[in-house]
C-alpha cells in the first residue's frame, strides 16, 4: 500500500514538472498513471472524502490538460 502511495506521489511530481515545462503529453501520461494508482488506493482503502476530493481534482486537471 505504501508503494502505491509512493508511486502516486512520484507520478504527481513528474506531472507537475512536465506541466511547468509545457510538456503536456508527458503530463497527461503522468496524470493517467495517478488515476490508475488512485483507483487502486481507493479499492484497498475504505472510501473517504479525502480520496474523493483528490480524485475530483486529478480528473479536473487532467481534463484541463486534455483541452490544450
Amino acid at each position: 500500500m505504501n508503494d502505491l502511495f509512493e508511486a502516486f506521489s512520484k507520478a504527481y511530481v513528474k506531472a507537475l514538472e512536465a506541466t511547468e515545462k509545457n510538456n503536456f503529453s508527458l503530463a497527461r501520461k503522468q496524470y493517467l498513471l495517478m488515476l490508475h494508482f488512485h483507483e487502486r488506493i481507493q479499492a484497498i482503502n475504505s472510501k473517504t472524502h479525502i480520496l474523493d476530493i483528490t480524485h475530483n481534482n486529478i480528473t479536473k486537471v487532467f481534463s484541463m490538460i486534455n483541452k490544450t
Binding site: 506521489s9 504527481y12 479525502i50
Partner: peptide, 10 residues
C-alpha cells in the same frame, strides 16, 4: 476535510 493543497490524498 482538511488536507494539503495538492492533488495528493493527504
Amino acid at each position: 476535510v482538511f488536507r494539503n493543497k495538492t492533488a495528493l490524498p493527504v
